[in-house]
């Protein structure tokens, strides 16, 4: 028996009240640190700060300004470029690594798993500093050791190469992390399915297409959505790697532009507007992605 009967009314009621009390800390923290700031930032997006203490109501003025702001569109384009690069380059590489590490023919799996996973343990700032050296146009490792193209590529100095440099750095840092998800998914597929397919004469590719991929669907959906959200929120890597988006905003992302407006330009209303536009972009893309991958479908 967990409680003793008592004559006090409170103790009689506590069975009903206690569960709410126990879940209350989460809701109190949520309201204070999430709910209130969310509503407050929505309100803020309708205002513009006038110095530190006063503000002025501008209605949807911040939203109309934003849609006519070329740097916002450039930042959006760069962010989308990174997201597409991540999904088309990083995730296939992560899946490939997972398949290799899941293969019975590969030796030293633990060491390889650690090696591929290790980059994610390095803070983004250090990654950016290291890759600054790696990408240097004239003395960097990439131009001097790997590329024999007869052309020194200005990875961080030429506008067209800045985002590819950021994407490749992202691959180095995050492919191993996503590989772990895929590996977990692969290890959850029942071996009997492959054995049955082999008996039926299926080759490796057919087994991959008809067993591996469909079985991995929930994992792929999860990794896709999480990677997409992470990509759209990209900030620290390009901020350090490109010294705040230089040259000519070629490395600017939405969150970087939000940060600059909020903290460097003291345009908090405008920054809140960028935040809300980003929220809607992420929400719409995530819903579309999940629908396309059939996550909402009844099995």
């Amino acid at each position: 028996m967990r409680t003793k009967p008592t004559t006090y009314r409170f103790w009689n009621q506590q069975q009903k009240i206690a569960p709410y009390l126990f879940i209350a800390p989460f809701y109190i923290l949520f309201v204070v640190f999430m709910g209130f700031p969310l509503i407050s930032s929505l309100v803020m997006s309708l205002y513009e700060m006038r110095g530190f203490q006063s503000r002025i109501f501008v209605g949807i003025g911040n939203f109309t300004d934003l849609f006519g702001d070329p740097i916002f569109w450039k930042s959006l384009k760069n962010t989308a470029y990174f997201a597409v690069g991540t999904l088309t380059l990083q995730l296939p590489i992560a899946l490939l690594l997972a398949i290799l590490l899941n293969s019975k023919y590969v030796r030293g799996k633990n060491i390889l798993r650690l090696a591929f996973f290790a980059p994610v343990l390095v803070a983004g700032v250090f990654v950016a500093i290291i890759f600054n050296l790696v990408y240097d146009e004239r003395s960097g490792l990439v131009n001097n050791e790997f590329l024999v193209l007869g052309k020194q590529i200005g990875w961080l100095n030429e506008e067209n190469y800045v985002m590819p440099a950021v994407i490749l750095t992202g691959v180095w840092q995050w492919a191993g992390f996503n590989m772990i998800y895929f590996l977990a998914g692969l290890q959850g597929i029942r071996q009997e399915l492959y054995e049955a397919a082999a008996v039926d004469g299926a080759n490796w590719w057919q087994a991959f297409l008809h067993i591996t991929l469909p079985s991995l669907r929930p994992v792929i959906a999860f990794v896709f959505v999480v990677s997409m959200i992470g990509s759209l929120q990209l900030f620290d890597l390009p901020y350090i790697l490109t010294n705040g988006g230089e040259p000519a905003d070629a490395g600017s992302t939405i969150v970087m532009y939000l940060y600059k407006n909020g903290f460097q330009f003291m345009r908090l209303g405008y920054a809140a507007t960028i935040g809300w536009v980003l929220f809607f972009i992420i929400a719409i893309i995530s819903i579309v992605q999940l629908r396309l991958l059939g996550i909402f479908r009844d099995e």
Binding site: M49, R50, G51, F52, Q53, S54, F263, Q264, M266, L268
Partner: peptide, 30 residues
């Protein structure tokens, strides 16, 4: 300064950062 709470007595500020602290009415500078 925005929350009007928690600022120190003395603070060092870098030259490219000071501009943002001067926004708005001059009497509202922190």
């Amino acid at each position: 300064m925005l929350s009007n709470f928690g600022a120190p007595d003395l603070v060092e500020v870098e030259i490219t950062s000071i501009g943002r602290f001067l926004k708005g009415a001059i009497d509202e500078v922190g």
